[in-house]
Write a protein that binds this DNA or RNA. Structure first.
Lengths: 343, 343
DNA sequence: TACTCGCACTAGCGCGCGCTAGTAGAGCGC
DNA sequence: GCGCTCTACTAGCGCGCGCTAGTGCGAGTA
């Protein structure tokens, strides 16, 4: 037997060996009524003996539906990994399979989505999509699509995200209550949710009368971005400018980068400076003192995403929906009272 | 048009609209000779108009081969994300598609692999598999399998890994040269490569005459493990025991956790203590001073894995092969001279 | 005996495509 | 005219399975 010559056994093989028709084998493997208990057991035993497994490709060709959800995600985005982890069980619960397709440099979102569709996924769940709204809309016309983490108003695409505004507001209120005034925000660039977070930060600063201190530092949702910001702030300090007393990072990864840069340089967290992240990915626990962050419930988001997709598949008339989940500030060790002293 | 009623156009639709036979459309989409340039363009234009895309499921049913590689990976393992990123381009270069299937808690390796096989993957690439050698061997008999990061001698499974021993030896020599003697190793538990690293650590300690200082702390390949170890070491210090002067972590994630725990507690790295990781995942750059680590070339490993799989598929008689890549110590900021003074 | 009913099982078409074995027609040489 | 070759295209089977419309048969009823 050559390695490449490993012939997959088919239903016909099982049927012949068991002395029944192929149709009956089909019935048995679909767990449909129409076969005696005795025959069921015999056929299953035979199938097991010759190593038969149903061929999904053929299966989903034969029945019109594939009952498969495609998930597009970005390698290296921690929070998306959390989401993927939540998607599997919910999909299984509803009787759907899951196919993953990653984007990375050199593999665009379009490519990743095409791969999913060509494998007959009935719906695609896009984790933090970065494509144009128009492209998203077009995709929504071609198939059932759900965007997670990014709002997509006015399109035929369902979306699941958290009320970014609320989350940021909670974080800002928390910091202000602790006496912070010089609070800067590291922007998430084109990252999912960034625009809303930036807006909410600005609004919160104004609301608290901190307009003069308002400062948005460009960045993105990576550790590098946090490190760079850290370097920038340290350089400013060395030139005599005051450090901010608190930083609202674009997400947890960014916050972690910032923390690494600052603590290495001897800045006390939260003594000299407080840091708040966003996501509550498992990174939040990396800091021994815990990262104060705005929790997005990845499990719940995954659940919604899967359910939106499935419900749209089963009732095509449904209008696009939007789930806006409540974020929740989780106070851990990286936020504390603002340091004393003059600005 | 209801959302779920989005009927995918098929070749028949294209053929009818273009006024040719379905077979000709097939020829054109497979880029085979047998159609005039003029017809080609017309058919492709028509196909584009009605939004036709080839159906992969049907395609791989019709031709015997699917030309698809399945990749099993673990969500959250950073280094595996690096590997996935390398697998895509190499597979594409060789004309293969890639299907991903993740393991996580609640989704076992067996489940993940079954999902891949049921979608007619011709071969599976297992990133850091944790299953029994016997199960791996069985899988190797059923299909073409490649294990990445874990050695699997005596099985019908190709494997790609680095010479863990060499890597550890380089790291240990580096530390000893810097004057370190009290070097502990955080074990990687059942993680890929752990056994070899542990063995090599022991051997290196003996070789350098440091047997009395030999110490392996149980752990695994997560940040949590590093944090716990950090806590443990700090607690020991508080009880008057000396800190080790250097730690060889099980991998980068573990090293990062350790660094977070130690630097938070005021331990100077590398002043008081040096830390060496393993993998050179992108985490290594998270530390502003850079993590000294043993580099595993993820791109090269991915390339080997894909090529092994493909070559076995195209020549089934090939015996299982093993690629052992040379690791390379990358010295960055977390390792420095051993601190002075008595133990 | 004749007639239904229900259970266990089978025949056979179709899913969308790849692929082999063709055919029709144009062009060419003699 | 005939035979040949070459290009452009088509007919039709098969991939492994789902599914509808059956068939056969024993038990129960009148």
């Amino acid at each position: 037997m050559s390695a490449s010559g490993k012939q997959r056994p088919t239903m016909v093989d099982v049927a012949e060996k068991a002395g029944v028709s192929r149709a009956l084998v089909s019935i048995i493997f679909r767990d449909q009524p129409g076969a005696s208990q005795e025959t069921r057991e015999r056929v299953l035993r035979v199938a097991d003996e010759i190593g038969y497994r149903p061929d999904n490709a053929a299966r989903l060709l034969a029945r019109g539906r594939s009952r498969t959800l495609g998930v597009m995600f970005t390698v290296h985005q921690t929070f998306q990994a959390d989401l993927v982890e939540g998607i599997y069980p919910e999909a299984e619960r509803l009787g759907y399979e899951v196919l993953l397709s990653a984007t990375s440099q050199g593999r665009s979102e379009v490519k990743a989505v095409e791969a999913l569709l060509s494998h007959r996924c009935e719906a695609v769940i896009l984790l933090g999509p970065d494509m144009e709204a128009a492209d998203l809309d077009a995709l929504g016309h071609r198939t059932v699509a759900v965007s997670v983490g990014r709002r997509v108003p006015q399109t035929r695409v369902d979306s699941v995200h958290t009320a970014e505004g609320k989350g940021v507001r909670q974080a800002m209120d928390h910091l202000v209550e602790l006496g912070h005034r010089r609070i800067v925000h590291i922007d998430g660039g084109r990252g999912p949710g960034s625009a809303e977070r930036r807006r909410a930060y600005r609004a919160a600063m104004r609301r608290h009368g901190l307009q003069p201190e308002l400062r948005v530092i460009p960045g993105d949702h990576t550790e590098e971005s946090g490190i760079e910001t850290g370097r920038l702030l340290l350089a400013e300090r060395d030139r005599g400018l005051p450090l901010p007393t608190a930083v609202l990072a674009g997400n947890d990864r960014c916050a972690m980068g910032l923390l690494m840069a600052l603590t290495r340089a001897g800045v006390e967290v939260p003594g000299d400076l407080s840091v708040v992240g966003y996501d509550d990915s498992h990174l939040s626990h990396l800091m021994p003192i815990g990262l104060t962050t705005v929790r997005q419930d990845s499990l719940l988001m995954a659940e919604y995403a899967v359910r939106f997709a499935v419900e749209r598949l089963e009732d095509g008339e449904l209008e696009p929906r939007e789930a806006v989940l409540d974020p929740k500030l989780v106070v851990r060790g990286t936020s504390g009272p603002a340091p004393e002293g003059p600005a």
